[in-house]
């Protein structure tokens, strides 16, 4: 477990940048409220995962190379997404193997934390629930669960909120069918998976769906919205920030 840092880098991810900026702002505010200074390098773009997962390694490396240059100080890099954190922590070492900047990539990879992991393990954050009673279903992304191994962190954060009742969908650990470019390349399979996921989440009669990956939320939330009468979905950072009053 790392010691509590004074300052961290924040990598917002491209999906949050474009679709869910409030989640990024909330994540940053949660960290700042704990007395930790946040640096957001403005030159950050994307971790490179879409190209990496499509087999375009040179292109992924070009983009990844531009990112690793942005985090020179020996401080944590916190990412509000298990998927992008997994890319940097697990796949950058593979992507930069035998490259001239391998050492730099390994250095950055070694400092990467997924947001909930950072809040729980490093900041040991204590939350006080100020919200109304609410039933929440959680969808943990596959990369958070299996690649980063941090599925228990979001549960422990929500467990601190006294008015939040967690309800559990069946086959909770199963993928939502997003898979990045998979949703585009195999749309019918992806659709069949997400529709079953929606069914299991609706069956919990949750008031809200929270998760730690914007991709899954966009996928599951989008499918519910298309059907109508959607259960509102929210990134964990935004949810936590709202529930805890938004101030120190």
């Amino acid at each position: 477990m790392a010691t509590r840092p004074d300052t961290i880098y924040f990598f917002g991810t491209c999906l949050i940048d474009l679709m869910y900026p409030q989640a990024g702002v909330s994540a940053m505010q949660l960290i700042q409220r704990e007395g930790v200074n946040v640096i957001f390098p403005q030159a950050q773009t994307c971790c490179g995962q879409p190209a990496w997962n499509s087999g375009y390694r040179d292109e992924a490396r070009t983009v990844a190379r531009a990112q690793i240059a942005l985090f020179p100080k020996p401080i944590p890099v916190v990412i509000p997404s298990g998927s992008c954190a997994g890319m940097m922590k697990v796949h950058y070492p593979e992507l930069f193997a035998n490259q001239p900047d391998e050492a730099q990539a390994l250095d950055v990879a070694g400092r990467v934390y997924e947001l909930t992991e950072f809040l729980v393990d490093v900041l040991q954050i204590e939350l006080k629930d100020l919200g109304e009673p609410v039933k929440v279903a959680v969808h943990t992304s596959c990369s958070s669960r299996r690649e980063m191994g941090v599925a228990d962190k979001i549960e422990s954060l929500l467990g601190q909120l006294s008015n939040v009742k967690r309800v559990e969908q069946i086959r909770k650990a199963e993928c939502c069918g997003f898979g990045g470019t998979f949703a585009v390349k195999q749309p019918e399979i992806s659709a069949s998976i997400v529709l079953e996921k929606v069914e299991t989440i609706r069956a919990t009669q949750a008031d809200r769906l929270v998760g730690q990956d914007a991709g899954c939320l966009m996928n599951i939330g989008g499918a519910m919205e298309k059907q109508g009468d959607a259960i509102p979905h929210q990134h964990i950072a935004e949810f936590l920030w709202e529930r805890t009053g938004g101030v120190a």
Partner: peptide, 16 residues
């Protein structure tokens, strides 16, 4: 294909 079973992704008004 995305919008066959999902609503279109909503871009935010301002980026992060």
């Amino acid at each position: 294909a995305w919008t066959n079973v999902r609503s279109a992704p909503q871009l935010a008004e301002q980026t992060l």
